[in-house]
């Protein structure tokens, strides 16, 4: 691998090509291993595939590129503050559409920062929701029998289960 390589090309699970800079790819362990294993010279036609769909991969790469400078060099507190604000904006997305894809991708790519951020976002969504709202938004079937439901109500009188 030539040391002059600054960006690599990867394929999404949909077969689309994406460029990611080497410093950003280092945020993910599996991507880092790919960097070491695959030859990235011009005459090499092997392009590694990442098992993440295109829509999700765009977001993951966006996150990596934003966080790479700080992860690689360390930065001041004001940068950290700015990055936190950026993270909040970044996470404003449709749940069913993409949040869970990002969560699974971060898990698969061993990206701790993004994984925790996505889990926190999912948890924040559940805060203060009623049981039926949670079932509705996450498409979960109520598989309790009416007796079990009654028992839950009796066990936890302080909670509203509607």
């Amino acid at each position: 691998m030539s040391s002059s390589v600054e960006a690599i090309t990867v394929l999404s699970s949909d077969g689309d090509e994406f460029k990611i800079t080497v410093s950003a790819a280092k945020l993910s362990k599996p991507l880092n291993w790919m960097l070491e294993d695959v030859c990235f010279s011009d005459d090499c036609d092997e392009v590694p595939t990442i098992e993440v769909n295109s829509k999700t991969l765009v977001k993951v790469i966006e996150y990596c590129e934003k966080h790479a400078p700080r992860a690689n060099s360390g930065a001041s507190d004001s940068d950290a503050e700015e990055l936190k604000k950026w993270d909040i904006e970044f996470m404003k997305m449709d749940v069913k559409d993409i949040l869970f894809h990002i969560l699974m991708a971060a898990n698969y790519l061993h990206m701790e920062g993004l994984y925790d951020l996505a889990c926190q976002t999912a948890a924040d969504l559940m805060k203060g929701m009623t049981v039926s709202q949670i079932r509705k938004i996450f498409h979960i079937k109520n598989d309790f029998s009416s007796e079990e439901q009654e028992q839950l109500r009796r066990q936890h009188p302080g909670c509203s289960f509607d």
Partner: peptide
């Protein structure tokens, strides 16, 4: 999540 949220989640499924 906090305990009070977990209490609710327990009744989801």
């Amino acid at each position: 999540l906090e305990v009070k949220d977990i209490a609710r989640l327990k009744a989801v499924s």
